[in-house]
């Protein structure tokens, strides 16, 4: 494990994501670079593999109007397709995508940004993953927790909106009943943080509100 984290730290530093003027910060202890084609959800249904974009500075206020403003300010280019090591330009600044596996049920965005010497307060994080469903699944729900406000889309449709300063609580935000199509389903989210810790977690619940298992994530 220690070796893996060291390698991640080196690779993050080598990718130029760490400010050149500073000594490289330690690699996050809760994250590692995604490896392998796919990763199943865990025994509680949590999704561990995500593309995460380096934080985009926003106002950091968390009311509903402020979140809408932040989404406009930090909008992703329409053609943006996450890929490890690629960058997108937002408001004239470049932000790199990172393919990550979280070692916990949640993905600690504070660890991610801090390790890269990026800001952790008054920022918006874009995250994205793809879920492979073995068959069509009806009446399931995306269930998330986020610190702080967040917006979530499933296959391009908005499904969850949480505002205000909040802790990341399992199954805090819940989508309406949705259908997972057989094969690839794309989850995209924006998490907006005012200050302090920031993280998120996500899983699907079945029609009986139980964690949905047997799904794979594939970036």
């Amino acid at each position: 494990m220690r070796i893996a984290l060291f390698v991640l730290s080196l690779s993050l530093a080598a990718s130029g994501l760490v400010h050149a003027q500073e000594a490289a910060r330690p690699a996050p202890t809760t994250l590692k670079r995604a490896q392998g084609d796919s990763l199943p959800v865990d025994s509680r249904g949590f999704i561990h593999r995500w593309f995460v974009l380096e934080p985009v500075p926003v106002a950091g206020r968390l009311t509903e109007p402020a979140v809408k403003e932040a989404l406009k300010l930090a909008a992703l280019p329409e053609a943006a397709q996450p890929r490890e090591g690629t960058k997108v330009t937002i408001n004239g600044a470049e932000h790199g995508w990172h393919a990550l596996d979280t070692l916990h049920y949640n993905l600690n965005l504070y660890h991610f940004a801090w390790s890269l010497s990026k800001p952790t307060s008054n920022v918006l994080f874009w995250v994205e993953t793809s879920i492979d469903a073995p068959r069509e699944m009806q009446n399931v729900r995306l269930a998330i927790g986020s610190n702080a406000a967040s917006r979530w889309w499933l296959n391009g449709e908005p499904v969850i909106a949480l505002n205000d300063d909040r802790q990341s609580v399992i199954d805090d935000g819940l989508s309406p009943r949705v259908t997972l199509r057989k094969g690839r389903n794309v989850i995209r989210a924006a998490i907006i943080n005012g200050g302090g810790a920031t993280d998120f977690c996500a899983r699907f619940l079945d029609e009986h509100d139980r964690p949905l298992l047997g799904l794979d994530t594939r970036l």
Partner: peptide, 20 residues
Amino acid sequence: LSAVGSSTPTLSTFDPASDR
């Protein structure tokens, strides 16, 4: 009426063993 999600009320089958 159900708090399956702690911030998101919905309707779901009643479970007498749960606080949802």
